[in-house]
């Protein structure tokens, strides 16, 4: 049985159920790296050039931690998810960077997902990937169908039930049912948090920010809880035709929540994130227009937990004072 390693970083949070179903149906064992911890972070930071953004460094750390545990590693190059939209260069060049920076790495499977080149190119690449596991084309087709089904189920679960990807992954893959997310009895205020899934849901990277906010008495809204169509429409209203696939979720969610009058908006981004640096300024501008408090937090490997907590507390206090919840 081939063991396929999947690093628990970057696109893991968006597509893991899909990948798991695909490799599972093809009869491979999926090995997921442990949640980010200090060792993983340090391993990654030691390899990459200093300017590289933190999620990519963490990704490299996850790959290194998987080296002894699997026979091959799955690192897709997700170039484009629609006509005239692309992803960040670092995600496109991820397999190449991984190969260059971690020469001791096992075989990397790097199908290029590029919908700009049409569906046929996509099918071809997935078929090529499947051929590594089986010679039966029908089996590959079955795996693709399974994968797509679980992906749809996963996306729906997040937008309908309003749960976070991590919980959805738990439910989809391990069958856990209890939710910790809505356990907060009577939240005083609603705060929307926007940002890349790999920043919001990596608890080590963001110092458990979501649970901290909940503990401070806020109801949290996340980009994954907005239906797809509303996201697209909101993003289009804000910037016209968007060019970056993953930014649609962020600015779309930002615009959507601002229009629905949340009490505050927090953008969680990482230092050096190119797409965020441009797009979030539009959301910030919009928040200023609508007079909704906006907090931009930029994280890197040096962010101290204490400083972050102080800023969050101050932000929530400011919102409370604005609403005269306590004077």
């Amino acid at each position: 049985m081939i063991r396929v390693g999947i690093p628990q970083a970057l696109l893991y949070y968006q597509y893991f159920p899909m990948w798991k179903a695909f490799f599972g149906t093809l009869g491979a064992e999926v090995v997921v790296s442990a949640p980010t911890n200090k060792t993983i972070l340090n391993l990654g930071v030691s390899r990459a050039v200093a300017d590289t953004c933190l999620p990519v460094k963490i990704f490299l750390g996850h790959v290194i931690s998987l080296i002894q545990k699997c026979d091959c590693i799955f690192v897709p190059a997700v170039t484009s998810l629609g006509k005239k939209t692309y992803n960040c260069s670092k995600i496109i060049g991820l397999p190449n960077m991984t190969r260059a920076l971690i020469p001791e790495c096992p075989i990397i499977f790097d199908p290029e997902i590029n919908l700009e080149k049409g569906r046929y190119y996509l099918y071809q690449n997935i078929y090529k990937l499947g051929r590594n596991f089986t010679s039966n084309p029908f089996k590959i087709k079955e795996a693709v169908e399974d994968a797509w089904k679980s992906n749809l189920a996963y996306q729906n679960k997040m937008s309908d039930k309003g749960i976070t990807p991590l919980e959805a992954i738990d439910r989809a893959c391990q069958g856990k049912q209890q939710s910790t997310f809505d356990s907060n009895p009577a939240p005083l205020l609603t705060v929307a948090v926007i940002g890349h899934p790999y920043v919001i849901y990596d608890d080590y990277l963001n110092h458990r920010m979501i649970s901290r906010l909940q503990a401070m008495g806020a109801k949290i809204l996340l980009p994954e809880m907005v239906p797809r169509s509303a996201l697209d429409a909101a993003a289009r209203r804000l910037v016209g035709e968007p060019h970056w696939s993953f930014e649609i979720d962020i600015i779309g969610a930002g615009e959507y929540y601002l229009e629905n009058k949340v009490d505050g908006l927090i953008n969680l981004s990482v230092f050096g994130c190119g797409p965020d640096s441009m797009m979030v300024s539009f959301v910030e501008h919009r928040a200023k227009e609508l007079k909704i408090p906006f907090l931009h937090l930029s994280l890197d490997e040096h962010t101290s937990e204490g400083g972050l907590v102080t800023r969050l507390e101050a932000f929530l206090d400011m919102i409370k004072r604005r609403q005269r919840i306590w004077v």
């Binding site: 990459a48 300017d51 960040c88 670092k90 496109i92 060049g93 190449n96 960077m97 050096g272 190119g274």
Partner: peptide, 16 residues
């Protein structure tokens, strides 16, 4: 330029 995404990819790959 600082934080240029494509050039960071290049910079990471060049030494190897």
């Amino acid at each position: 330029p600082f934080t240029c995404m494509p050039e960071i990819v290049a910079q990471n790959i060049m030494p190897s």
